[in-house]
Simulated scan of single mutants.
Amino acid sequence: MTAHLPDNTKIGQVSLKVSNLERSIQFYTEVVGFQLLRETANTAELTVGGKHTLLTLKYIENAVILPRQSTAGLYHFAILLPNRVALGLSLRNLLAHEIEIGQGDHDVSEALYIHDPDNNGIEIYADRPREQWKKDTNGFYIMGTDPVDAEDLVAISQNLPWQGLPQGTVIGHVHFHVSNLLKAQQFYCDVLGFDITSRYGSSAMFISAGGYHHHMGLNIWAGEGAPPAPENAAGLDFFELIVPDQRELDAVVARLTAAGYGVQELNGAKYVADPFRIQIKLANGQTS
């Protein structure tokens, strides 16, 4: 039987390891637009709307800041905004802070790319309506890399005040460097149950549940056989994968266990590491 995740599977929070907690709090609140929900000596939880944690920052003493694209691990995590106007407001705020910005019109979405002070990649994007997404003859979504119409994004948000990330903002997807695409496919598709939605030559693939253009990107742009990120490196701590209920969570755990992946329990939550030591928190939507 082919593994298959439920259609309403989604990405939950992302947890990052950072080298300077106060600097990262300032960056993610003032530049990106999160709100601080709570802070302890070594961690900060950030939110949009004040209820649920979307981003956790975890201070690592003497954390190593890695060069970009040097190990398996985080390429970027992606903040999905509810509309283009919100994307225009984010663009204007990034420009006001003189942040280096990459960009791409991917047909299914429009995206801005930045890095935090620890070289963690961030995508800020807005989707086009799903009925506008197109597929090729293989049934894969067509996702290009044309320039974003930045002038229009600025224009449509021109007379509106920046008030941070708006209600309805979520973590839309995560994108990782991996050391081998076939191993990634075997884990994320054959065992976890994601569907392949697009490929970028032989160097990247995109996967999702429920027909979304992608909940995850996986690439070998750090090199075939790229080593896992060291434990003491700034970067991803974990990302959260949320299935709708406990029955589905039990099924995921059973598939992982049967395939030889050790599912660990910590503080009442279940975690598993993929073949590249990327940590996943497994949750169900009724309790997360």
Rank of each mutant, 00 (worst) to 15 (best):
L165K: 07
L165P: 03
P166T: 05
P166L: 10
P166F: 05
Q167H: 12
G172W: 04
H173W: 10
V174N: 15
F176T: 14
S179T: 06
S179I: 03
L181I: 05
L182W: 08
L182F: 14
K183A: 13
Q186E: 13
Y188T: 11
V191F: 03
G193K: 11
I196M: 15
T197C: 14
A204Q: 01
A209E: 07
G210I: 07
G211T: 03
Y212G: 08
Y212Q: 15
M216E: 02
L218D: 02
I220Q: 02
P227Q: 12
P228F: 10
P230N: 08
P230R: 05
E231T: 06
E231I: 04
N232Q: 11
A234L: 11
A234R: 03
L236I: 09
D237S: 14
D237Y: 04
D237E: 15
F238N: 03
F239R: 03
I242L: 12
V243N: 01
P244Y: 01
P244S: 03
R247F: 04
A251G: 00
V252T: 07
V252Q: 01
V253W: 09
V253L: 08
R255E: 04
L256G: 06
T257W: 01
T257E: 15
G260V: 02
G262T: 10
N267H: 11
G268W: 01
D274Q: 14
F276T: 05
F276W: 14
I278N: 15
Q279C: 12
I280Y: 07
L282D: 00
A283C: 11
N284G: 00
G285V: 07
Q286R: 08
